[in-house]
């Protein structure tokens, strides 16, 4: 199935367990049986061409899509049978901010805090806004924010309820270099407390962060390897496995 099967990432318990995941849209099968695991504290980088099924995989993990077959467990809970604890355990950062533009930063975070039933909402919001350098603009409507500021606020939204697992859907896309630095700074700050799955086109970032690398093509895992591959070698592997050759 894959070149570098390695299940024993230091023996930590698996935070994400995917077994035989299939997803069909109508009669089109997008995921054709994926199996992989991510140990607690791990960082899985998923690469692959557009339409390969990367985002679909991530959305299944996020409970936004239901699997057609197979079992998916996140933080010890089955995403289909028991989605509520999974939702509490995950945060999603994507290139869409998922923020209400007509509400202020405070109101947006307050809304999500209520949705997650946070008991210490006010302190948590203040603390996050402080760390993300958004305190000064706290009572401004999000519509007036720059792209980078929105992305920072999106990160605050995603980690607000202290999720154990962070799902990143091309978080670097559309960011200017300064925003990329801020994002990376934040990731570094929260890296130790979380398990990550990142879908990305950005090979450099994927290799930099990943403890485990995976290429999905045509709904299957085409390549799976522990980290420690250098950029050139990985690019070669990518070209070998992905036939449209759209390597960055």
């Amino acid at each position: 199935m894959s070149d570098g099967q390695d299940r024993q990432d230091g023996g930590a318990p698996l935070e994400i367990e995917v077994e035989g995941l299939r997803k069909t849209f109508g009669r089109r099968e997008v995921l054709k049986g994926l199996s992989f695991g991510v140990p607690r504290g791990g960082f899985l980088s998923i690469f692959g061409p557009n339409g390969a099924g990367k985002t679909t995989t991530l959305r299944v993990l996020a409970t936004l899509l239901t699997a057609s077959a197979g079992t998916v467990k996140v933080a010890g809970h089955d995403v289909r049978e028991d989605p509520m604890p999974v939702r509490r355990a995950i945060g999603l950062i994507s290139h869409n901010a998922m923020l209400y533009p007509d509400l202020t930063a405070q109101e947006n975070l307050r809304f999500y805090a209520d949705m997650y039933g946070l008991t210490d909402a006010d302190e948590r919001i203040s603390d996050l806004l402080e760390r993300l350098e958004l305190s000064a603009r706290r009572y401004d409507v999000v519509r007036t924010y720059s792209k980078g500021m929105r992305q920072r606020l999106a990160i605050a939204r995603a980690v607000l309820h202290r999720p154990r697992v962070l799902l990143l859907d091309e978080p670097h896309s559309g960011l200017d270099p300064r925003a990329v630095d801020i994002l990376d700074g934040l990731l570094a700050e929260i890296r130790d407390e979380h398990t990550f799955v990142m879908v990305t086109h950005n090979i450099a970032k994927g290799l930099e962060w990943g403890t485990k690398l995976m290429i999905i093509e045509g709904g299957r895992i085409a390549y799976e390897h522990a980290a420690g591959v250098d950029h050139d070698a990985f690019s070669a592997v990518y070209r070998e496995h992905v036939h449209d050759g759209s390597v960055l």
Binding site: R87, N96, L99, M115, Y116, G117
Partner: peptide, 13 residues
């Protein structure tokens, strides 16, 4: 418009 619906559906609601 801003994919807020995803944010809403991600919540344990």
């Amino acid at each position: 418009d801003e994919r807020c619906l995803d944010g809403l559906l991600l919540c344990p609601v």
